[in-house]
Each structure stands twice: as structure tokens, then as C-alpha cells.
Simulated assay, not measured.
Amino acid sequence: MEILRRKADLRARTREWHAAGQTIGVVLTMGALHSGHLSLVEAARARADRVIVTIFVNPRQFNNPEDLAKYPRTEDSDAAKLAPLAIDVLYVPDPQEIYPEGFATTVSVAGVSSGLCGGTRPGHFDGMATVVTKLLLQTDADFSFFGEKDYQQLQVVRRLVADLDLKTEIVGCPTVREEDGLAMSSRNLRLESDARRAAPVIGRVLGDAARAISGGGDVAATLEAAQATLRAAGFDTIDYLELRGDPDLAPMQVADRPARLFLAAWLNGVRLIDNLPVTPV
């Protein structure tokens, strides 16, 4: 595994690979890698001839400076986790490789970015879309792999790739969960012991609500009951618990077509998100 920090060095390597007729898969991360990330790397290895993993904690997608400051930075342990997977390049760009002096461009995606995390984290998706566009261009990837846990992010990336005529195929991969059902996230590292024991209720509540709505249950009443359960379990604030169409993410009051339930809630100062599909019977 080669560790590169300059886009010129990365591009030299990707030119060699493409000249040899090899395909490139990339997994974009902010580090603090867990099994969910590693499952994306394994999917990339199965699909592409060469694999790049990127680590860049992107300041432009944090609307809360404190959240940015607390985000774990664990490059050495991340590299150790990647070593057995035989990736080709770990790209850890210096900040000026992403945002050089005078940088003045923002990629903004309308529609699927509205509401949900787009509503509660102003500017988040603009920052995410901008850095994803830059990294897809810098890596010259044929495939890029994203987890469905961040489902709104996945739809935003698919939209920007289609709209900007980028060549990269975006591949969605299933959410990876802990044994107790909690969706894997780098933020889970910040949960203290009591909060970590309470956190899995988020998956159980979503599962119960998805089954109830799929079976014809009233959407508003089901979501109200789910919120009450979350508050009783210790969740401080619920940013949203909504039914949205899939894949357009339009708000829905009646489950009359394929949809997803989306949830973001705070537990002892840590924001957790999850989602599950809803398929009407």
C-alpha cells in the first residue's frame, strides 16, 4: 500500500493504471475507519483492478466547529486496518491539495439535498458535494462506493455525477451494523458506555415503524409513537423522523410507493442517523 499526499503523484499513478487498461475503484472517507468502511473497500476490490482509499476530514461539510474539532483523526490505525486488504493507494491529501489559496467554487445539488440532513445541517451537502467532486476528479475513478447508511448523501452524489457528466459509476452498498443492530459510524466512538447501550434502540424503532407502515399502518401515528419511544430511551433531540420517497426523497404522508424512513437523533451530545426501506404490501 502506497501512501500519497499530492494530487500530482496520485495522477501519475492513475495514468499508469489506465494506460494499462486497468479500472480504478475508490472509497472516499474521513478516516476513523470501521467495518462499514472496510466492507466498501472489499466491494471495490471485487469490482475494480486497482483500489484507492482517501482520507480527508473535510471542514466545509461541518456546520458546527465543535463537531469538526472532535472528529477523530486516526491515520496510523486506519492504515493498519487497510493493510490486510491489499489496496493500492491510500490518498491522504494535504489541505492545499483540496482547497488551494483563492479557492472559490462550490458544488450545490438541489432537490435530493432538501430537508433531512440538508435541513438540519446548513451547508453540509454543499461542502460534501464539492469535496466529492474534487476527489472523483483527482482519483480519476471508474467506480466509487458509498454506504446506504448515508442514503441522502448517496442520492446527492448520484445526482451530481449525472448532472456534471462525471465518468464515475456510483455503487451503493448495504449498511453494516454492529451485532446489536446499531449502524456502524465513526461517531459511535464518541458514545459513552451508558449511551452506547441505549443507542441500538434507534435501529429497533426504525424497524418496528417500517414494518408497521409497510403493513398499512397510519404513517403519522406510527412516527409519533416511534418518537415517544426514542425520547423514553434517552434521545435528547430528534432532528427528523420522516418517510421519504425512494429515490427522489420527496416527503410522503401515505406509503403508496417505495420509500424509506429516515431518522437523525441526538444521544448525549452525539448525532446518530439511520434509515430503512419501506415497501408497501
Rank of each mutant, 00 (worst) to 15 (best):
L82F: 11
C173I: 14
R204P: 01
P247C: 09
L276W: 02
V171W: 06
P280K: 04
L4R: 07
P251I: 14
A264W: 02
R190D: 07
P93E: 06
H37R: 04
V278H: 04
R45F: 07
R6Y: 14
A233C: 08
A209Y: 03
K70S: 13
T74C: 10
D150A: 04
R60T: 15
I213H: 01
P280Y: 08
D94E: 15
I213C: 12
N275R: 01
L116E: 12
T14L: 14
W17V: 11
V53N: 03
L160Q: 12
V89W: 01
L243M: 00
A221K: 12
L263N: 00
D236Q: 09
P277R: 15
E148P: 01
A221H: 08
R177E: 09
L243R: 00
H34C: 13
V281G: 12
D150M: 03
A220T: 13
P251N: 06
T14I: 14
S77I: 15
G111A: 09
A8K: 11
A226Y: 02
L116N: 03
R196W: 06
A162R: 13
V176M: 14
A198N: 05
A83H: 10
R204H: 10
P100C: 08
G127Q: 06
A259W: 03
I202T: 06
A259T: 11
N63D: 15
Y151R: 03
A110R: 09
Y240H: 11
G216N: 02
V171Y: 02
K81C: 12
